[in-house]
Simulated scan of single mutants.
Amino acid sequence: MSVLKRPLITEKSQGLNSQGKYTFEVSMGSNKIDIAREVEAMYGVTVSSVATIRQYGTTKSRMSKSKVSTGRTSTIKKAIVTVKEGDLIDFYADL
């Protein structure tokens, strides 16, 4: 099973790309060492630091004509990877 699930491409994460920081969604059981090894192997860059964040799921409700529908969003783990100065990860290279 892969440690990296997908890159997170949002306005805020695109702003961090100019500083050499890239955001990924990772598996819940992964640690910083595993994440750094996977990014180095997959993208061919040198990782200088990794910061991890758990974004806990929240309860959401929606009203319809007949009832209230309630659910919960998923809990995910994010990693912000800082690469060595001069290295670049291009997510759009394969498109």
Rank of each mutant, 00 (worst) to 15 (best):
L8K: 14
V3K: 04
L8N: 06
E85D: 13
V45S: 06
T52G: 01
V47D: 08
T10V: 07
A36I: 03
L95H: 07
K77D: 00
T75A: 12
Y92I: 04
T59C: 02
A41I: 07
I53W: 06
M63D: 15
K77Q: 12
I89A: 02
V50Y: 08
A41C: 08
E25C: 07
Y92W: 10
E25L: 09
F24M: 08
K65H: 11
D94S: 09
V3P: 01
V50R: 01
F91P: 01
K67D: 13
T58D: 12
A36F: 01
R72A: 00
T75D: 14
R72N: 01
I33C: 10
I80S: 00
S18D: 08
V81I: 12
R72F: 07
Q55P: 04
I89D: 03
I33P: 03
S64T: 15
T59R: 15
R37F: 05
E40G: 04
K77P: 05
I80R: 04
K60D: 03
T59N: 10
R62V: 12
G71A: 02
Y56N: 15
T70D: 14
F91E: 06
L4D: 06
K65G: 13
I9T: 14
D34M: 09
M42Y: 11
T10G: 01
R6M: 12
Y43E: 12
L88Y: 13
S27C: 03
E25R: 09
T46I: 10
V26H: 04
G20H: 01
S13Q: 08
A36S: 14
I9G: 13
A93I: 12
M42T: 13
R37W: 06
V39D: 03
G15D: 11
G86P: 02
E25Q: 14
S66K: 15
K12W: 00
E85K: 14
Q14I: 07
D87S: 07
S64M: 13
V81F: 09
V3D: 03
V50N: 06
V68E: 11
S48G: 05
E25S: 09
I89W: 02
T23D: 00
A51R: 14
T58R: 15
V68C: 03
Q55W: 07
I76K: 10
M1P: 05
N31L: 06
L4G: 03
V26E: 01
N17C: 14
I33M: 15
T73R: 07
G29Q: 11
S2N: 09
T10L: 07
T52Y: 01
I76P: 00
Y56K: 11
A36Q: 09
L88V: 13
L16T: 06
R72D: 03
D34A: 12
S48M: 12
Q19P: 00
V26C: 06
I53D: 04
R62Y: 08
L88M: 09
I53S: 02
D90R: 00
K60F: 07
V68S: 11
M1E: 11
S48C: 09
K78F: 08
L95T: 11
S48D: 14
K60T: 10
R72K: 12
R54K: 09
S30D: 03
T75L: 10
T70E: 11
A93D: 15
E38H: 02
K32V: 10
T10I: 05
G57C: 10
